[in-house]
Amino acid sequence: MPPAININNQDDLPGDFAIWIFIFAEMLAFGVLFVAYAFSRAQDVELFNASQLTLSRISGAINTLVLITSSYFVVQGVAAIKRGLNKQCAHWLTGAFILGGVFVVIKMVEFHAKFAADITMSTNNFYMFYLSLTFFHFMHVLMGMVILAMIIMKAKRGGYSTQDYVGVETGASFWHMVDFLWIILFPLVYIIR
């Protein structure tokens, strides 16, 4: 197969530069929260360890696998569009979108269990961070799903080409960010003690 002509400068970040401003800002916000979590934990290790054990590690782990796999699908979607295959791209991204939905459902079950146990952000510092971080991340998954849906619809209409796929890369970059933030969040909040 002939190599696709890439009009994007390889030096540049994949996708629209505007999304990268967001990605860097999001990384900063999450980074501060991660570090704040770690230092607050150092103040009261016992409380954090005890509360941490009440979390469902299995659902956290499944969600990690779900997001990693969805990211993998997005990579395949971008590879497809670089060869001009709109339909295949839409299929891969739909797969990623569905996995996003799975993440959301699992997360809501988890939230429901915590709220049913009367746990709120005021319960203690650990739950404050747990609920804040996961909810904040949850909103990003929803946002990412909206972006994916818009790209899927455009791809189904054949809206991208080997010349013009910046839109796909833009959405993909955001989705990968959602993925790697969870990759850090999961061990930090669910596992390490």
Binding site: P14, I68, V74, V75, A172, S173, H176, M177, F180
Partner: peptide, 12 residues
Amino acid sequence: VANYFMALRKTK
């Protein structure tokens, strides 16, 4: 994820 999925490996 950053290097290979986001394809940052090839950027500046």
